[in-house]
Design a protein around this nucleic acid. Structure first.
Lengths: 255, 255
DNA sequence: GCGACCGTTTGACGTAGGTCAAGGCCGGCG
DNA sequence: CGCCGGCCTTGACCTACGTCAAACGGTCGC
């Protein structure tokens, strides 16, 4: 089930690493403080409170294909991605897989309304995360209720994204799905301060398929179809040049 | 775009009304207090606080096909369904529709992370709702931060449901989708204290299709296929008897 | 530097579910 | 009371996408 390290992914890591290391270096701590600051963005804490929060976090480092946790496991931690890319997915007993989302630096995962994780999480490329023990986080929430507002905002945001994805999965064609996906990746990269146009696509065709409700082959075929239509260009190291963003947007919206 | 009152729906309203009127009568207020109590369930407020919250709510009454709000409209209110059934959906420009969810008494809608609603909402059957002006609710959250935990819990719960729905939309067959849907309706009815086995299905085949990423025809065909396999029986007034829940569960999980 | 492995691409073909069209059913209204 | 307009059902047919299979190409280990 676990993907082994692939040459293709390695090349992508090299391609991505500089920008992300730089992003990480701008924060003074290797891990905690930046995530904590992120978590409390909308509700700045005092210095003492910040230290209190920072103290409970730990670093996690994952290589491509490494699992972080599995669906059904006891949800003991919440994580924040500080660098790299993760995928979270659900499985059916016969192995069919639906990727629920891809996570990049700044994203959180592990928020469960139950006592167990509702999905599995795995690294796509070399990634570092920040671990918050759930128990301790809950105690902190009790103490600093403003953090709850921040979590609520993140959950609402994720919910809206999930609803948009439902529209995609239920009602869009393969072509529309791929166009939407590429634009989404670009948009999210821009939010992270990365380059949005030659967009970095670090995940495999298979992963893309499992995210969009398609097969590897259909994803591949649709990419070549868009390439032949001069809408995109496939660059080395898993980058995709969006040659005609406006046309892609038209396609993505179903026109 | 708005559905007009259909005879079929009328019959269902009559079927549903008694139970729901009773449920409403158990609370002392026609509207506010029960919703407020619901909202603060995990963080009980004192009498004075409760009154404070109750004061800001208003009743809304909708008939089948009545819109509550549209996607893109300024999100000025948050609602709680006190009786009836609503559908919330997103549209593509060409009219393709994805129903994001069905809401029953006790459910909330209108939580938007943006300033505008991310979806449209419409009544399926005669429904009553409780309106919370968003501005005032935000002021209350500032004052009673425990309510935020409740909202966070609801958002997390919805998120988990949305993720389950993504798995359904992306990876399940028509048969599996319908089986999952019927079981879900039953489960949700049970949570509301209604009968879970002859489950009430107040929405049209078309709505079910738009919820499951299918067409009316496929929904209909799949129902008859399940009926012929003695897994369900179609009762009058839009009720469905789940004759073999265990088999349905097997199908829903993809076995 | 060569072979093997994986992911990707491409092709030929199959099928689940969509489309189009025609009846059937039922409640409401004239 | 009988027509009318929804929705639902069923049938015949079509197609987008899945399946199966083969070839390709980059990377890494040897």
């Amino acid at each position: 089930m676990h993907q082994t390290l692939s040459p293709f992914d390695i090349s992508r890591i090299r391609g991505l690493a500089p920008a992300q290391e730089r992003a990480g270096a701008e924060k003074e701590s290797p891990c905690g403080a930046c995530s904590v600051r992120h978590l409390t963005f909308c509700a700045p804490l005092g210095e003492e409170e910040l230290n209190h929060v920072t103290r409970i976090v730990q670093n996690v480092e994952l290589h491509p294909g490494d699992p972080l946790f599995d669906e059904g496991e006891e949800a003991t931690n919440i994580y924040s991605v500080t660098a790299g890319a993760m995928k979270v997915y659900k499985l059916l007993p016969d192995g069919r897989r639906q990727i629920i989302g891809f996570l990049f630096s700044g994203d959180f995962l592990g928020l469960a309304d139950d006592e167990v994780y509702a999905y599995s999480a795995e690294a796509i490329i070399h990634s570092t995360l920040c671990r918050f023990p759930r128990r301790k986080l809950e105690a902190l929430l009790e103490r600093y209720p403003r953090m709850e507002r921040r979590l609520l905002g993140m959950a609402s945001h994720e919910l809206a994204a999930a609803q948009e994805q439902m529209l995609l999965l239920g009602r869009k064609t393969a072509r529309e799905k791929i166009a939407s996906f590429l634009l989404l990746l670009g948009q999210r990269a821009a939010q992270r301060g990365q380059t949005a146009n030659p967009v970095s696509v670090p995940m495999s065709r298979n992963d893309i398929g499992d995210y969009l409700g398609l097969t590897t082959e259909t994803v591949s075929r649709t990419f070549t179809q868009l390439r032949q239509g001069k809408l995109i260009a496939l660059l080395p190291a898993g980058r995709v040049d969006l040659l005609d963003v406006e046309a892609l947007r038209e396609i993505a919206e179903g026109n």
